[in-house]
Structures are given as structure tokens and as C-alpha cells.
């Protein structure tokens, strides 16, 4: 099944629940009408929250840059000794 079909099925199921809520009026009608809007807004909030949390905990590795610099120096020395043209910079 294509992924878009799964998402569509999920949306159809949610709409079915919504319509049955409208029919049975468990909640006040004015509230029920707004449920899809709440859903979209909360999905947006979830997205923004995830991006924000991800940014705050973005894993960085400044020490790796230093280690790599050391590896580069070591590699250049070895390769120069073997006659590989690695330049002089």
C-alpha cells in the first residue's frame, strides 16, 4: 500500500469519528465543529515544538573538528613519506 493511502485512511477514520460526534452530539455542536481546526493547530504546534526541542538539543561535536585536523596532519606526513603528492599548504 502506498504511504499516501495509509495517511488518507487515517484521515478518513478521523473524519468518521468527527461526523459521528456531530451526529450524536456528545459534545456541544459549536465545539465539535471546531475539532478539525484544533487538530490542525495542534499538529502545527507539535511540529514547531519538535523543531524547537531538536534545535535546543542539536548534537554538536567541536572536539571532532580538532581530532580531524590532527588526523589530516598525520595522514599528510605519512603520504609525503611515501611519495604521494599531497601539496605543501
Amino acid at each position: 500500500m502506498k504511504h499516501i493511502v495509509k495517511i488518507m485512511a487515517l484521515l478518513v477514520a478521523l473524519s468518521a469519528v468527527w461526523i459521528s460526534l456531530l451526529q450524536t452530539s456528545v459534545l456541544p455542536k459549536s465545539q465539535t465543529w471546531l475539532l478539525p481546526l484544533y487538530f490542525i493547530v495542534s499538529l502545527g504546534c507539535y511540529g514547531l515544538l519538535m523543531v524547537g526541542v531538536g534545535l535546543m538539543h542539536f548534537p554538536t561535536c567541536p572536539h571532532e573538528a580538532i581530532l580531524l585536523q590532527q588526523d589530516v596532519v598525520e595522514a599528510k606526513e605519512f603520504l609525503k613519506g611515501k611519495g604521494v603528492d599531497v601539496g605543501t599548504d
Binding site: V51, L55, T60, C61
Partner: peptide, 16 residues
């Protein structure tokens, strides 16, 4: 894991 050398904009688009 981790990344080094990305500015805020790059991190933001990556997370998004």
C-alpha cells in the same frame, strides 16, 4: 553522534 560547522539556519532547516 553530532554535527560540526553548521550555522543556526542550517540546523533549523535540517530539523524542520
Amino acid at each position: 553522534g553530532g554535527v560540526h560547522g553548521w550555522n543556526l539556519m542550517r540546523k533549523l532547516t535540517s530539523r524542520g
